[in-house]
Design a protein around this nucleic acid. Sequence first.
DNA 1: CGGCATCCTGGGGGATACTG
DNA 2: CAGTATCCCCCAGGATGCCG
Lengths: 138, 138
Amino acid sequence: MKVSFSDLREQYDGAFRENCPTRTVLDHVMSKWGVLVLFALTDGAIRWGELRRRIDGISEKMLSSTLRTLEADGLVSRRSYPEVPPRVEYALTDLGGELMEKLGPLMEWVAAHADDIAAAPDARRAESRVGREADQTT
Amino acid sequence: MKVSFSDLREQYDGAFRENCPTRTVLDHVMSKWGVLVLFALTDGAIRWGELRRRIDGISEKMLSSTLRTLEADGLVSRRSYPEVPPRVEYALTDLGGELMEKLGPLMEWVAAHADDIAAAPDARRAESRVGREADQTT
DNA sequence: CGGCATCCTGGGGGATACTG
DNA sequence: CAGTATCCCCCAGGATGCCG
């Protein structure tokens, strides 16, 4: 492994513990819709309806609740204009922006390899990284 | 936004479409346990029981199913030794290793800011990134 | 030890209708 | 337009038990 996760684990091994805040954040950010909503906001502030249209398949309920969660987490900001008809814009906070910088490379990688993975036969099982000599029971 | 998500979106805007493979991968990787399992494997191959012990709160069922999913995705390899008592080791595949390289910085960031976010009052709502002049209805 | 099989429950999440 | 409210369903996921 090129990345020293050991260091991370030493400092934040609590990530593996149930009560750790990391778990919560992970659950919010990595939730089914969390990533997509955050990702959809990377262009800048957009309106509720636009968000809904951009994220295919999301229901009003989930969009609302996801936005509320992310807002409570301080990752997304909500700004409503006292107009009629009502207009509300959502945007990433500075914190959310930082997060997306980390999330960006990941999304790119996933997008690039999605087909490989989705189409993955179990043929790839042989491609083990462990350099051990042992029988494959399977 | 410092990252050019626009480029990504142009090429892979399907990420927002329901049938897109990206969605599937995201759901698997970003699932409640997916990240933690992958993360726990970054030290190298470890045994089933060890995994279970490392990931606090995971049930046998979820560990098994998560491992099977990730294995089918070609991100994790499974190697069983024909011994008695049985021994099975799991490890990241090359693909899984690549993924974790992208996931690493994210995890570090999350771990570092988890407390901020978890403890986030709605006070942070004011910290909007949009430089617009408008009334805050809330 | 390393699992499946089974049962069961909570809440994630969709559909629809209504409101400011 | 931008939500909230309500109903309801489904399955993620925990608990338990058994097997190779």
